[in-house]
Write a protein that binds this DNA or RNA. Structure first.
Lengths: 350, 350
DNA sequence: AGAGATTATTAACACGCGTTAAACTACAAT
DNA sequence: ATTGTAGTTTAACGCGTGTTAATAATCTCT
């Protein structure tokens, strides 16, 4: 670095105007106040000097950082193997670029939520935040709600009045299991996508229960396993299920990531999908269409969720009252090759 | 928001000290200057008032934002289906949290690189940046180099003197193809991980060429296909390869993501891996061990790469001269189930 | 041409904190 | 008591920009 930083003062000097004028040129909304030829002169001077407005100074003076935060509620270890995440990030990056915003990524440790949220919002490094996969047991959410900090949840927490964008996990899961039942399956296992402290996990599990109930199938708790976001956990849980309690002809795995592991365990046991076991996943991550077999799964429009969350947050930031503080994105069951009608031989009598 | 923001002035007042003292308490390095009991009083006052130092003001005054940027060189569409990315982000998040830094994510449009880099660094929203998968044809890199902006490449560009952290793509790829040759394969196809403008793609392709050359196998250009990061492109390219030129017994796919699509195309053609075609991937993403069949692939320590990049950048930020400005992380061939000795019947004579 | 109305520009303060150099305190040594 | 000294604290300035209220320039209309 040889030469000093270029400030708006230098630009003003070169353009023969005052610093305020330069500032006005750079705040888009009031452009009408500046005569076009003056603005042109300022822009040229800025270009010549290589002037870029200092973000920190702007943030300090205007009290907004033009940056939003994406807050994740799990540790990096689980972030590293989440194939749903890139879709969210991609979706956000798209909008954020259009809107000239920055995107800051953070994660919170369980037990530190309250402090982290408060710090993030008060430090004003970010103007607002999007919280990915919120947890029931997060005491920080109440604080956010009471303090009225701009915030959008990606996922819904019952009893929490924060704005959110989500799919209807429960009915979507029911849809998936309904389909298995429709194919003639009665003994249907379930592996969750994550610990039930995560709202999406417990809601999907509820949907599974709903479907069984609606079809008058007795719930067998031993057919339920809890996974942990990634394929490895799906593998473990499926293996366990197959050795402990192998009497099921179909399974609902509440996350494609987890389903990949489950598939591996099934193959390893010498069984095949869908011949021996029908499997329905959840999320429809881009890879699901290329798994072996191609996954029947619930399509979750990740990009849309990201976009809606972002727009909703932006409305809150502008102080506008959004049309609705809660947005539900419809899902859709995608039928591919991992499911089929039950074989006669699989039907066990009670 | 009912009450005004709490500033260091308020804390100072309540603690009965001056604002400077508060500031000293919050800058760790000079804590020795403040008497423990005074510091205690300040901390208590801060706690009572709910004081959090304003990030923008700090950044402005100290000329450092304590935030680093992760810059991606492709569009959100390709970010959304990159399963290598979460590992990088997870790795960075880990370090960044320990070091109390922020992580800002950005992407650059081709053609806008120069401007984007300059803006990012001059606006001082970030102190330095990590550029993921740099491209040969990126004119912005020169600018970064000449201006001496703190920056680390994740990936190496020949002729570019910016600090980097990378694996040896070329020799790693050679290793993979050597293994196929060792198994008796002579007709070996290749699908790249991305366009050859990305250094990793062209380097891996070079490694493929090296291996063939070393084994005196004539290079057949028609066995080479260019993919585009994701499974979909792998599927397309493989399908094309199988219809256009089906005479190969093995294939090197320079990315596990792409390999997943390739596998699907192979299955769809009624062939199987490794019986009909042996396949070696690259990256060893966490899912590779659960693909069907489990992928033989080159393990790329993503977490380590992320960590080393982060540490290297931090050294540059502190003005320290790092032990080495270029770091190479060793890779390792992981042998699983997607490769095997060639069948006699596959050996064609020339 | 001159008063009034409009528009363009500027001066001056504010944003909240880091940091240097100076001022103050307490205490030991003279 | 005075001086010296190390240890604490503070006053005051600067970081680069946004924004308001006031001033200057331009235009409109009679």
């Amino acid at each position: 670095m040889n030469n000093k930083r270029v400030t708006s003062f230098d630009v003003a000097e070169l353009a023969g105007v005052s610093r305020s004028t330069v500032s006005f040129v750079y705040s888009e909304d009031k452009q009408s106040r500046i005569r076009p030829e003056t603005r042109q002169r300022v822009r040229e001077a800025a270009e010549k000097l290589g002037y870029y407005p200092n973000a920190s100074a702007r943030a300090l003076a205007s009290n907004q950082s033009n940056t939003i935060g994406l807050i994740m509620t799990r540790s990096p270890r689980y972030i590293a193997s989440d194939n749903f995440l890139p879709q969210i990030i991609g979706g956000l990056l798209d909008i954020v670029k259009q809107e000239q915003l920055g995107l800051l990524i953070e994660w919170v440790e369980p037990g530190q939520q309250m402090q982290t949220y408060l710090q993030l919002s008060h430090a004003k490094h970010i103007d607002g935040m999007i919280i990915l996969t919120p947890r029931f047991d997060d005491p920080g959410l109440n604080a956010l709600e009471q303090l009225g900090i701009p915030c959008v949840l990606m996922g819904q927490i019952p009893g929490c009045n924060l704005p959110y964008v989500d799919i209807d996990n429960r009915s979507s899961a029911k849809l998936a299991v309904d389909y298995l039942i429709e194919l003639g399956h009665h003994q249907i296992a379930c592996i969750t996508n994550a610990a039930t402290a995560y709202s999406s996990a417990s809601q999907r599990l509820e949907g599974y229960r709903d479907a069984l109930k609606a079809a008058d199938i007795a719930l067998d708790e031993s057919l339920i396993r809890i996974a942990d976001f990634d394929a490895a956990s799906g593998y473990t849980q499926m293996k366990d299920l197959l050795t402990e309690y192998p009497r099921f002809s179909a399974i609902f795995v509440a996350s494609d990531n987890v389903a990949l592991g489950a598939l591996a365990a099934i193959h390893e046991a010498g069984l095949s999908v869908p011949e021996d076991i029908s499997l329905v996943g959840f999320d429809d991550i881009p890879e699901a269409a290329f798994y072996y077999p191609k996954l029947t799964t619930v399509h979750t429009p990740a990009k849309e969720i990201a976009e809606e969350s972002c727009y909703l947050l932006m409305q809150l930031l502008k102080g506008e009252t959004p049309f609705s503080r809660t947005i539900n994105i419809p899902t859709q069951l995608i039928i591919r090759d991992s499911t089929r009608m039950i074989e006669r031989s699989h039907i066990t009598t009670y």
